[in-house]
Structures are given as C-alpha cells and as structure tokens.
Amino acid sequence: MKNKKIYVAGHRGMVGSAIVFKLQDEGYSNLVSRTSSELDLTDQAATEAFIRSEKPDVVIIAAAKVGGILANDTYPYPFIYENLQIQNNLINASHSNDVGKVIFLGSSCIYPKLADQPLKEESLLTGPLEPTNQWYAIAKIAGIKLIEALRRQFDRNYVSLMPTNLYGPRDNFDLETSHVLPAMIRKFDDAASNGHAPVNLWGSGTPMREFLYVDDLAEAVCFAMENNLEKSLYNIGTGKDITIKELAETIQRITGHEGEINWDSSKPDGTPRKLMDVSRMKNEGWTYTHDLKEGIQKTYRWFLENRDEIKEVKM
C-alpha cells in the first residue's frame, strides 16, 4: 500500500503541499509532482502524455485557479475556463490510462446560495448559485459530474471531496486575491505593526462561515485514498460555523491588534451562511481534529515566520 505511486496535482499550493506532507508522514514515498512550468495542466496533450508515461496508481487533483469574492468577480473567465481545462484533462487522462483512484477536490461554493442549512450533498443543483463565485462553482460542479459519470458508467473508484473554507500554512495572503481568513490575518497584522491603525473590512460581518484547517483536509484525502467510499461526493468540514464578525475579533486577539474594526456595508457579504452537513463522511469514519482558534494560531505563526518570503499572487 505504501509504495503506491501517487501524483498530487497542485503540490505547491496550500492544499497540495499539505497533502504531500501528510502522505510523507504516513510513509508514502513514491510521490510524483510537476511544477506548472514543467507541466501545463491546461494542455490536454501534455497532461495525457504525462499520465500515460508516469502511470500513477492514484491522482489527487488539488490544482485549481482559486481566489476570494473579489478575484472571482473581477476575473470570471479564467476562473471557469482554466479550472474546466485542468480538471477535464486530469480526469480524462486518468480514466483513459486506467488510473485506479482519483480524488477530485472542490469547494462548498458548489451549493445553491440559499440552500437549506447545513448544506447536504443532495442540495447540489437545486437552486441558483452565489453570483460572485458562480464561475468557479460551475467548473467544480462539472468535475463532480465527470467523477459521478465515470463511477456510474465504468465503475471507477473515483471520488469528489468538497471542503468548506480552508486556511493554513502556505495560504495566499495577498489582499487583492486572498480568501477572507488569510486576508484578515494580513490586515490585522499590518495594522498592529502600524500603530494599531483601524482595520476596514468588507460587508456587515453578519454572514456565517465554516473554516477547516488545511491539515485536516489532507487527512481526509488520505482517508479517501485508503478506503473505498460508497458515494461519489462528500462534504469535508467541521459542521460548525461562526459569524465573520466573530472571526475578525478572534484574529484581532491572536494578532494583538488593539485598534478599531470598521465594517463597509456597501461591499457584498456573499452567501448569508455556508455550513456543511458532514455526516456522510463522518459515517465513513473520518472527522476533523483542529478547532478554529488552534488552527488560526498555527497559521499566524507560519505567517510571521514566512512574512518576508511570502509571494503575493497576482491574477
């Protein structure tokens, strides 16, 4: 089992790197990776040739074009087109070259904006999406359906895991393109270093969000790889959420910021609430281990240790 050849697509990102570290910790040594300069996953022929040549036993798809509300809303075309290219090429190449296991990673934004809470896997495609991130969501929904179709038609042991909002070491802390939690860490740390200046945040602070430490997702991926899961789609999260205001106050305390927090209600809030029903995966035998405060503390420590080297991701 431990000598399985495993290809992690997107191994340099926050999610992919956490998965690689977890696999190594678990004793897997036959890991395959390529940087984007070595392999362009939007190139169908190159992706097909790579999978055919390497013949991995497992393909884990953590490669994606990602970003927060601003990035999704500002750059809709690459968020739908490039994500469709990446996942279509990897999933089809895996199938055509008889890869035994594929784990496709997506996001909780696949669910309708006003779906019943907590979000169940059965809620997929039951209503309109949140407009600001619909481009990314539609691409990921297509990937989910590719996995489902391959399971149904060819009995493939492929599975889709949909994590809630992720955070952790090696996250994107660029204020233009990052998600809410790392952006807050950056803003509060900058403000604390600048005489505890006021911090301006988008929206009203009332939306509720669920957050999962990235190492917990890595554990879920290993679990899915090592077990034959009954369904094609699983939510991955904590099953607990807090308001954005509570999140901001938690990060403010952890970073030591003592200034004011100003909320700009003219900016969009996004989906009112996004809480995952994680009972399906829990029934399979997996659950998370990091609580939110512990995860933020670990993330902030990593941020402080790597602040000078952090590369700001530009679109």
Rank of each mutant, 00 (worst) to 15 (best):
residue 290 H to S: 07
residue 19 I to H: 04
residue 225 M to E: 08
residue 25 D to Y: 06
residue 204 S to P: 00
residue 39 L to Y: 05
residue 292 L to A: 10
residue 70 L to C: 04
residue 269 D to E: 06
residue 225 M to D: 01
residue 302 W to M: 11
residue 280 R to Y: 06
residue 302 W to G: 10
residue 1 M to S: 15
residue 45 A to V: 05
residue 58 V to R: 00
residue 314 K to M: 15
residue 197 A to W: 00
residue 245 K to R: 03
residue 190 D to P: 04
residue 67 G to P: 02
residue 33 S to L: 11
residue 225 M to A: 06
residue 130 E to D: 11
residue 188 F to W: 06
residue 147 I to L: 08
residue 244 I to P: 00
residue 151 R to V: 04
residue 61 I to A: 13
residue 214 V to W: 06
residue 95 H to I: 09
residue 227 N to D: 13
residue 222 C to W: 08
residue 180 V to W: 08
residue 136 Y to C: 08
residue 262 N to F: 14
residue 226 E to D: 15
residue 306 N to K: 09
residue 167 Y to N: 08
residue 23 L to I: 06
residue 159 V to R: 05
residue 35 T to H: 13
residue 146 L to V: 00
residue 124 L to Y: 03
residue 102 V to Q: 12
residue 24 Q to G: 10
residue 106 G to S: 11
residue 10 G to F: 14
residue 179 H to G: 13
residue 212 L to W: 03
residue 198 P to S: 09
residue 63 A to W: 02
residue 255 T to Y: 02
residue 265 S to K: 12
residue 233 L to N: 01
residue 120 K to L: 13
residue 315 M to E: 10
residue 1 M to I: 08
residue 169 P to K: 12
residue 283 N to C: 13
residue 143 G to L: 04
residue 284 E to G: 06
residue 275 L to N: 04
residue 111 Y to H: 04
residue 14 M to P: 05
residue 27 G to K: 12
residue 23 L to V: 08
residue 202 W to R: 14
residue 69 I to E: 04
residue 95 H to V: 10
residue 197 A to V: 03
residue 97 N to G: 09
residue 119 L to T: 02
residue 231 K to E: 13
residue 151 R to T: 07
residue 45 A to C: 02
residue 288 Y to I: 00
residue 57 D to R: 05
residue 176 E to F: 09
residue 209 R to N: 04
residue 144 I to K: 07
residue 139 A to Y: 01
residue 223 F to L: 05
residue 183 A to H: 03
residue 302 W to F: 10
residue 58 V to W: 00
residue 163 P to H: 04
residue 118 P to H: 07
residue 224 A to E: 12
residue 57 D to W: 07
residue 254 I to R: 02
residue 133 N to W: 06
residue 70 L to T: 03
residue 61 I to D: 05
residue 52 R to A: 14
residue 24 Q to L: 06
residue 56 P to M: 11
residue 91 I to D: 07
residue 236 I to R: 02
residue 215 D to C: 02
residue 14 M to Q: 14
residue 311 K to V: 15
residue 300 Y to A: 05
residue 219 E to S: 15
residue 7 Y to V: 10
residue 113 K to P: 08
residue 44 Q to V: 02
residue 301 R to D: 12
residue 6 I to P: 10
residue 263 W to G: 01
residue 172 N to R: 00
residue 81 Y to N: 15
residue 83 N to A: 01
residue 150 L to N: 01
residue 277 D to C: 04
residue 32 V to N: 10
residue 245 K to C: 03
residue 128 P to L: 05
residue 91 I to H: 02
residue 131 P to A: 05
residue 102 V to P: 12
residue 306 N to E: 09
residue 265 S to E: 11
residue 284 E to M: 12
residue 138 I to F: 09
residue 230 E to M: 08
residue 156 R to K: 13
residue 21 F to G: 03
residue 149 A to I: 00
residue 203 G to D: 12
residue 175 L to E: 14
residue 201 L to V: 14
residue 111 Y to V: 05
residue 209 R to V: 06
residue 245 K to N: 05
residue 222 C to G: 12
residue 282 K to A: 12
residue 103 I to H: 07
residue 206 T to Y: 01
residue 231 K to I: 00
residue 229 L to I: 01
residue 17 S to A: 11
residue 56 P to N: 15
residue 73 D to M: 13
residue 161 L to H: 01
residue 104 F to G: 02
residue 313 V to S: 09
residue 261 I to E: 09
residue 266 S to H: 14
residue 252 Q to V: 07
residue 151 R to Y: 02
residue 237 G to Q: 06
residue 200 N to Y: 10
residue 312 E to D: 15
residue 137 A to I: 03
residue 200 N to W: 05
residue 6 I to H: 05
